[in-house]
Design a protein around this nucleic acid. Structure first.
Lengths: 221, 221, 221, 221
DNA sequence: GATTAATCGAGACGGTACGTCATGTCTTAGC
DNA sequence: GCTAAGACATGACGTACCGTCTCGATTAATC
């Protein structure tokens, strides 16, 4: 003990380590429950029962069921939609949108919807989702937009953040608000029509009549 | 008696009619609770306690608290954002989007978010929201888009349904997914940039004077 | 409907005539409900539903369901066990005890048990039972005992009230406390053995043939 | 450890043990409520409120309030009327009857009456009462009767079970059916008069002429 | 190899809210 | 006028999960 305090703080993990077996069993049980009964079925109680794990063990690793499910979602989505990449930024954006449409009806998509729903009542869940899912992805997509602007493929006067909202907003709207199937065809339409408004004009690259821009940009009120 | 059987059976409301006093008290209590404690605070139990009404009376009129809150929302939003109208369709669309941004942080907006959240777990709520709120409004907005297409202000080859998604999708995305303040400025940016992709090309179809575009883009109000 | 008023005797009385019809329907419904679901099934609500009568109508005639059921019981028991009668008082007593055993498992018996049970929590029911059922019968039985004493068949130094308790107490005890079948054989045993203690001693007062006492004690069956 | 595996697996009480503090608080609260408001006042809700215990905790130990109250009654009666004992069986019986009369108006007596009432509607309660209260006591009393028969103090041709019914039946009848005070004087009268019929005849022991019995045995009607 | 400390399962605990049931009172419309 | 229908306040029911808290029994790293 003397040596322990004397030397630099060694990791010194005392006691029995957390069981990976338990962790896996918990996440698997949660996944199965969400799959067949939706978010509502994945109660801590049910997860514990199904995984053969004590509630205590769950609460030792997660503060509540939403945190657990966010973990599950992160795990699932990591292997679902890879972040946008490739030499052609516009194509990368298009690919990503189609990817979103693709998984929207699978488990990760439905789980995301459920968690986004819960996030409306629970700030903590929202923060978790933002920190662990949205932020990374959004930043990546934003960078692709920025690159397209640099290359002259997109108008540079639109903030990448707004551009991303324009592209993915309609997709989420369909899923989340309208609860309608998110087809690849719809993703294509959104991509095409939004791009039409964002693309740099054929002849005019970066210079656009300032006056028009002004009036367009004028804040009403 | 003859007349009764002769004519169609009158509704013949039997028994003691529902009390409007109770209904008002319930909705008012729900509103107050949502206002100060959010959706989570508006439990049936709390609503009953605050309104001085028996739980059974609430359950007699609504199957669960979400149905009740949808009723409340319908009531509130009726007086909040009027459906798009006016001679100039583009201006009407713009006005509507600004209206949405305007109320997004008020009670109706927050309540809508909460209910949309609950709708992710409860099909019934979703159906209610669609039937009693979205459908009417969406149809109205769709008609305005269609009119703009007829007048040659918007490209006719984009389905009005998709156009509406492009316009309002980003707004909901901000509110619902990103939980960021929905400013009028943002609504303007969305409107402007989406329009840029949707409006009829200058020399293309119906030939509309470019200058007109300017005024069209001017913020209403 | 025209035929209805045309044919059947037009009671034509506006308010009241329904009264007796309703009363019968109520009691019949109550009886049916008790028969198939026991006391617990005969709620005012259920009786109203089954009889097609409004709850109000029931409450106009009875203060609560127990009062109603006491009425039903009185009706039923009137035709079940007639009060003790006959020239030979001892035989009358014996007959009555056998009568009680006989009906103990029929509807009146079971209903009585249920009401006696409810009477433990509800003074009102108890008073009703006493006033409308027990008192009359008990008085009659007491008179028979008294007569037997006068005739010299029973010892005169035992209060008739106590004698009645000795005779019927064990019967009720079996039914009520032990919930065991009340056979005629058991009634006989009780009668015989209690009588052995109550009857006048052979040579004592009115001189009864000793042999009778002996035989009386023989166990039947 | 060796011994543990060697021997049969011990009961192995898993999980957190039931709290005796909670149990005591619950029973005490129940007792207090019964004391001042009768059986009706001792609702689960009220017991929970008064004892500061959660309803769930109560339901974890008892299926319903009657089961709880039976437990309370067992506890109370254990210290109230001790089972009959002593060298002289007749005196023991007499003492027991006086004991019953003694406590009949105290809490255990009133509680027993209430539970017997509830038992008329609820088989489960009845079974509990029989198993945990009546059976033991009845067996003890029966043994005393048997002993008295062996000693020649009581006629041997009467089943002890019937004898017990004859002795205590009238007491319960008074309490339960007539709701009249159970005095020691009444207990004495019952004892004396029943004994008069059960006592072995001075000279006559077991021989009784079978023939006379027939006519008297005839079923009246 | 013994000590030790955090893990594990199990399940009891105080809570909150749920949705249901029956009570007895009341308020309508209808005949 | 009384009836049927049914809304109403009340109060208790029994259930579901929540997140926390004991328990005794395992582990593995440290001593």
């Amino acid at each position: 003990m003397a040596s322990k305090t004397a030397v630099s703080p060694p990791p010194a993990v005392r006691g029995r380590p957390r069981s990976n077996v338990a962790r896996r069993a918990i996440l698997d049980a949660a996944r199965a429950l969400v799959e067949k009964g939706g978010y509502a079925a994945a109660t801590i109680e049910a997860i514990a029962a199904r995984s053969g794990v004590a509630k205590t063990t769950i609460y030792r690793s997660w503060p509540n069921r939403s945190a657990l499910l966010v973990d599950l979602l992160v795990e699932l989505s990591a292997q679902a939609v890879p972040p946008p990449a490739g030499p052609n930024p516009l194509r990368a954006l298009h690919t990503e949108m189609r990817g979103i449409a693709d998984v929207s009806d699978d488990l990760p998509g439905r789980l995301l919807m459920a968690l986004l729903g819960a996030a409306q009542h629970d700030t903590e869940i929202h923060r978790e989702l933002v920190d662990r899912l949205f932020q990374v992805r959004r930043a990546a997509t934003g960078r692709v937009v920025r690159q397209a602007q640099v290359e002259g493929a997109l108008r540079p006067d639109v903030s990448p953040s707004v551009a991303v909202d324009l592209l993915v907003g309609p997709l989420f709207f369909r899923m989340f608000v309208r609860h309608e199937p998110l087809t690849v065809g719809f993703a294509d339409q959104v991509f095409r029509n939004v791009l039409a408004g964002l693309e740099a004009q054929p002849g005019a690259t970066k210079s656009r009549p300032p006056r028009a821009a002004k009036s367009r940009r004028r804040a009403p009120r």
